[in-house]
């Protein structure tokens, strides 16, 4: 299902990868309304709970609403179970909303992060409500341009430095080919100690 007329979309590139000792998620910062850029410094890397993040793509309204609801539900979960939620639990709650409301929603979400039970995990939840656990998840309109690059360059054995460089390069390539991706490259490095966030311009990333 496409966007409704006048709807604000995060015509996007989002990316999340598992690396040797961390998870790195990344996104461009463009939000568009047709040909107009409604927000050139959008933050599509949304904090959910603890060390769990989600990357949003599709309708801005839908993904913001779902992220807020899931965040709330996980806070309730944490209190009532007296236990920190895992990435898997977070991803499955997201999936439940996407699947049960598939006819009403335009939302493609990547859930990624770290938890005590499973360590690092990345879940891809494309439009429609399916769920896929994977090492490297790509999403949004710009991802189509970088499947080849990612297939060729990615390795889960990469260290933090190489991983960050890979994620940024992939985003830079997607942003240069996709008109509805652009702005800055936002990244978050997640490990057992916490989250480190960084923003750079596409022009600051060197290609090979």
């Amino acid at each position: 299902m496409g966007l409704k007329p006048g709807e604000v979309s995060t015509g996007t590139t989002i990316l999340a990868g598992k690396f040797k000792d961390c998870i790195i998620i990344g996104a461009d910062s463009r939000t568009s309304m047709g040909t107009y850029i409604a927000n050139r410094v959008t933050d599509k890397l949304t904090h959910v709970v603890d060390s769990i993040y989600c990357c949003r793509s599709g309708s801005a309204a839908d993904t913001q609403a779902i992220a807020a609801i899931v965040k709330y539900e996980l806070d309730v979960y944490a209190t009532s179970h007296n236990e920190r939620p895992t990435v898997k639990v977070a991803a499955k709650i997201f999936k439940r909303y996407l699947y049960e409301n598939k006819s009403r929603l335009t939302a493609g979400i990547i859930v990624a992060g770290w938890d005590h039970q499973d360590g690092f995990s990345v879940y891809n939840l494309p439009v429609g409500g399916s769920i896929h656990e994977m090492n490297l998840a790509l999403g949004g309109s710009g991802s189509l341009f970088i499947y080849g690059f990612c297939e060729e360059m990615y390795s889960p054995e990469m260290n933090r430095e190489d991983g960050l460089k890979f994620i940024r390069t992939a985003l830079k390539l997607a942003m240069s080919s996709d008109a509805s991706s652009g702005g800055m490259i936002r990244t978050a490095i997640i490990d057992e100690n916490g989250v480190q966030r960084d923003d750079v311009l596409g022009s600051d990333v060197k290609t090979y």
């Binding site: 006048g6 604000v8 107009y36 409604a38 410094v41 913001q64």
Partner: peptide, 20 residues
């Protein structure tokens, strides 16, 4: 806040037919 319910936080913003 847009009609479908999305929000943006920015240091400066414009909306309406004269937004451009």
């Amino acid at each position: 806040v847009m009609p479908h319910g999305s929000t943006d936080k920015l240091p400066y913003m414009t909306l309406g037919s004269g937004m451009l």
